[in-house]
Simulated assay, not measured.
Amino acid sequence: MSTCTAASLAWAEPLAGTAATARTWLLVEQPGPWGAKALLRSRLDPEVGAALSAAADGSAGVRVALIRRPGRTTGGRRAFLAHTAPGNAWIRVLADTDPARLTGLDFARLAQGHHDGIGEPYDGAPLVLVCTNGTRDRCCALLGRPLAAEVATAGGADVWEITHLGGHRFSPTLLTLPHGYAYGRMTPVGVKNTVAALARGRVALEGCRGRSTWDRPGQAAELAVRALIGEEGADALTEVITSRAQDATGEGAAWTATVSHADGRRWSVTLAEGPTGAAAPASCGAAPAPVARLTARAMERLP
Rank of each mutant, 00 (worst) to 15 (best):
221 A>F: 03
237 L>C: 08
241 I>Q: 13
221 A>V: 07
239 E>P: 00
238 T>N: 01
217 P>V: 04
249 T>W: 04
246 Q>E: 12
221 A>M: 08
232 E>A: 15
246 Q>R: 13
248 A>M: 08
238 T>K: 04
232 E>I: 08
242 T>Q: 01
237 L>P: 04
239 E>H: 15
231 E>Y: 03
224 A>K: 00
247 D>F: 10
236 A>H: 06
242 T>W: 02
249 T>H: 10
247 D>A: 15
229 I>D: 09
239 E>M: 13
246 Q>N: 07
222 E>R: 06
221 A>W: 01
246 Q>H: 14
236 A>R: 13
227 A>W: 09
247 D>R: 09
233 G>D: 11
238 T>F: 08
242 T>H: 03
246 Q>P: 00
240 V>H: 01
239 E>D: 15
227 A>R: 12
227 A>F: 03
237 L>N: 04
219 Q>F: 02
217 P>R: 01
216 R>T: 08
223 L>Y: 02
222 E>S: 10
231 E>K: 06
242 T>K: 05
246 Q>T: 12
248 A>K: 10
248 A>L: 14
249 T>E: 11
244 R>Q: 09
222 E>D: 11
234 A>I: 13
220 A>T: 06
233 G>R: 14
227 A>Y: 03
232 E>K: 11
230 G>W: 14
225 V>Q: 05
246 Q>I: 14
220 A>P: 05
223 L>R: 03
221 A>S: 12
243 S>G: 11
231 E>H: 04
223 L>G: 08
220 A>R: 10
241 I>P: 00
218 G>A: 02
238 T>E: 07
241 I>A: 15
231 E>D: 14
243 S>Y: 09
249 T>N: 08
228 L>M: 14
249 T>K: 02
249 T>D: 15
245 A>E: 10
227 A>H: 13
249 T>S: 15
248 A>I: 09
237 L>G: 01
233 G>C: 05
220 A>S: 13
222 E>F: 07
216 R>V: 07
242 T>M: 00
226 R>T: 05
226 R>I: 09
249 T>V: 01
221 A>Y: 00
237 L>V: 07
219 Q>R: 05
241 I>R: 14
224 A>T: 14
217 P>N: 04
219 Q>C: 10
224 A>I: 03
239 E>T: 09
249 T>C: 08
224 A>S: 15
227 A>I: 03
240 V>M: 06
221 A>P: 06
228 L>W: 09
232 E>S: 15
219 Q>N: 10
235 D>Y: 13
241 I>G: 02
216 R>S: 07
236 A>F: 12
237 L>A: 04
246 Q>W: 14
247 D>C: 11
237 L>T: 08
242 T>G: 05
220 A>W: 00
239 E>C: 11
238 T>S: 12
236 A>V: 10
228 L>Q: 12
234 A>V: 15
246 Q>D: 10
242 T>V: 13
236 A>W: 05
